[in-house]
Design a protein around this nucleic acid. Structure first.
Lengths: 228, 228
DNA sequence: AAAAAATGTTGACATGCGCAACATGAGAAT
DNA sequence: ATTCTCATGTTGCGCATGTCAACATTTTTT
């Protein structure tokens, strides 16, 4: 007779949606502790299940972290689309994307690091497909803003422009990615100035790109690795 | 009488320089496995000492990793100074710095991630002082190249130029940092094209900076956090 | 030479990962 | 409806790790 609470309330043997519960707990712990080194057992405890229940949903810790990372990508993609929702000017849209991107990272460093920190990259195969999707959504947003004239002039999204567009995206992305991580690692700061910094760098970048968009060398991809 | 080998050879009770041996082993394991999740015990095994010997040199795993990271910063700084050794033109010097930086990261992703991945950032205090030093060496290199005219015109390293110079450095650093990590995470690639990509981005960046250097907002630092 | 400090070793404990065997309950097959 | 089956949850285990405490061996100081 396992009766924990004083009331007659009794948790059913089956949780109902343990998968989400575990991922949710992981997100919570991650954002509290800002540390990837929590234990699966801790998550199980939080979800109120036994220490091994999670293994019915995730082969191992790595797989759980991959799921968490995927949610992170979804969140980030959503923040970016939300931020552009009410904007028309391509320039404004691009700026909003930049802000949302950096902001997303700075507001939850541990999650951002999990997403981009190569907990997954290191080993064998590739990243979970959901990450590809989010990355592609994000890329689509950028392509749209750029081809609509965010760099001062429209650049139609045609084949002969791909290398130019990819060059612009790479410039943008690596600049924002770098800024985010430097902020997160407190190698520049303070991060309260995030918005201003983003603005400055973005502005400088746009001025630069307006004059000269670096063309991507042949054979280079921008975005998640091509499916084989 | 603990005699392990068949010969009369006997390792002395004291290792001699276990500190370096452990750090060395860590660097080796790190670059083999590309994974920060090796165990202290494994390092001890490699160094041929008992599983607890490392604790006489490092308070805990974190401290060991900090030491490894510090070596990483020294290596990177050295690669950059070496790369500029025989160059005079400020522009060439800057390009060489960029190549060396990205190359250093791509050639040992796990080390680079350890250095910048905030294994240290997360917790309480700051990073070990040696990292500050290396970061400042690197910054000095950049300041020198920039003030000598890497952006097309000399910008004397005076107080009224600090915000401009810091702006340029932030642009440069975050761009290279971002590119490095995107390459490392295989979100752009392939990394064999590293050199060309670096060149393209750098060129675009320089053109941009030549026209308009983003000024750093007041109250922002670039480089490791100011000592309190 | 004796005392103190540094460095290595052994053993122990708590915690975590992940396996295997078992328990429980929900839905399919009859 | 009853039974079978399978997904899901539980308990208990083996093994590895981080780290502490107690002890051993050198080296350094005094």
């Amino acid at each position: 007779m396992t009766q924990h609470s004083s009331t007659t309330e009794q948790r059913p043997y089956h949780h109902g949606d343990l998968h989400s519960a575990i991922v949710g707990a992981a997100l919570a712990v991650l954002s509290e502790s800002q540390n990837t080194e929590f234990s699966l057992r801790e998550l199980a405890r939080r979800a109120g299940v036994s220490h091994n229940a999670p293994y019915k949903h995730f082969a191992d810790k790595r797989e759980l972290l991959a799921a968490v990372s995927a949610v992170g990508f979804e969140l980030l993609a959503k923040q970016m689309t939300d931020a552009t929702k009410d904007l028309d000017s391509p320039h404004e849209r691009l700026a909003a994307i930049a802000r949302a991107y950096v902001c997303g990272g700075v507001n939850n460093p541990a999650l951002y690091r999990l997403m981009f920190g190569g907990y997954l990259t290191g080993q064998d195969d590739g990243r979970p497909p959901i990450e590809r999707t989010a990355a592609e959504d994000m890329k689509a947003l950028l392509v749209e803003a750029i081809s609509n004239g965010a760099l001062g002039r429209p650049i139609p999204n045609t084949t002969e422009n791909t290398r130019e567009i990819d060059g612009a995206i790479l410039t943008f992305w690596s600049q924002m990615h770098g800024l985010t991580l430097l902020l997160v690692d407190r190698l520049v700061g303070p991060s309260e100035k995030m918005a201003e910094l983003t603005e400055s760098l973005l502005q400088g970048m746009l001025d630069g790109l307006a004059n000269c968009i670096p063309a991507i060398p042949a054979g280079v991809w921008v975005g998640p690795p091509l499916a084989k």
